[in-house]
Design a protein around this nucleic acid. Structure first.
Lengths: 188, 188
DNA sequence: TTATATCATACGACACGTTGTCGGATATTA
DNA sequence: TAATATCCGACAACGTGTCGTATGATATAA
């Protein structure tokens, strides 16, 4: 007898959704398996048929998300004139903001930002080196600088009550990339 | 009868140290009060005389650290020619790297980076506005950009096995601040 | 100086909730 | 009908937070 994907997939999705609803409200270590299964309508033991513990749910979710993140930019990157894929990054974040805001937030996963960077660095590096950049410590640190700044700003942008338009944001980020922060800070 | 600070302060410090040793090794929600008190040499109940729960230990520690962080730059900022206190930031991080590396790390506190930013933004903003900057959305976002980038790079720097010298780092950060990331990424 | 009352500090024990793992009940498919 | 997938109830072990209590130090009075 083979497994019935129609049933198990639905059950797993129900558990995933119940977990995410709770994860949006409180930190992961305050989430009990009992809460998840009650919300999803299952016995607590059923949880263990699909996940090893509460962290396992989050890890699997992060894996799927990282995989999704890597699909989008690849297309846009090739037909990109900018060396640093700024627009691709912004549109990627917008597309998955529902999850990113929480995972990068104050009650999120402190390791997740590192996972994003690790998954994007090789792609961006490849493009940059193909365009003539040297693969040295300066490239490494500049990439870390740029990704940290972008993620920080985008996270800030998504958490704002009345955020500026996406066009204004991209315009500002482009200026900062091209001219640095000092010109803006000194007062132009 | 008054409290005996000599005794309680020592006990509290012992508990704090035991907690930190454990926090360096594993995520906070895997740390039990029993572990902390056993390591410090007390009964589990004694813990509750000083802290409400495990998170309370971390919160108090973060408060002390934030307070310390705010002392250092204030002196250096006044005698600073740069509008953005880059050197002050770097020296501040170096001075407290023991704690910052962990708190900003993969098993750290996802809210701590926000706490640092929140505590530094008013100081830096004050200086910048006094130097003629306009207090608008561009300043806000540029500050978020700069702080995210600096914290990201410094965290990366401290976690490296063979990091470049502090002089090289400051030189690179200065260039990135003055000229932006593009010049570096394109390949100069 | 000595005896005693008082309080700070640390401890042991209790009830409760969560965890992970059994074996078993029910339903579905061959 | 037989076999297996899916889900469930029960159990032991562990961590949590809160009692009441023992011990030792300090202040006050005799």
């Amino acid at each position: 007898m083979k497994k019935n994907p129609a049933i198990t997939a639905q059950t797993k999705q129900n558990l995933n959704q119940a977990f995410w609803e709770l994860y949006c409200m409180k930190r992961i270590d305050k989430i009990t398996i009992k809460e998840i299964t009650m919300r999803a309508g299952y016995n607590r033991s059923t949880f263990y048929e699909y996940f090893s513990d509460v962290y396992d749910v989050l890890e699997q979710l992060e894996e799927r998300l990282i995989a999704n993140l890597q699909e989008l930019p690849v297309q846009q990157l090739s037909s990109q004139k900018d060396p640093f894929p700024l627009e691709a990054l912004v549109s990627m974040f917008s597309h998955h903001s529902k999850y990113l805001v929480v995972l990068l937030g104050d009650q999120g996963d402190p390791a997740f930002q590192g996972k994003i960077k690790a998954s994007m660095k090789p792609m961006i590096k490849e493009i940059l080196i193909a365009q003539g950049a040297r693969d040295d410590f300066e490239l490494e640190y500049t990439l870390e600088y740029a990704l940290s700044a972008m993620i920080g700003v985008l996270r800030y942008w998504f958490s704002q009550e009345e955020p500026p338009s996406i066009e204004k944001l991209v315009e500002l980020l482009t200026e900062l990339s091209d001219e640095g922060i000092m010109k803006k800070l000194i007062g132009m």
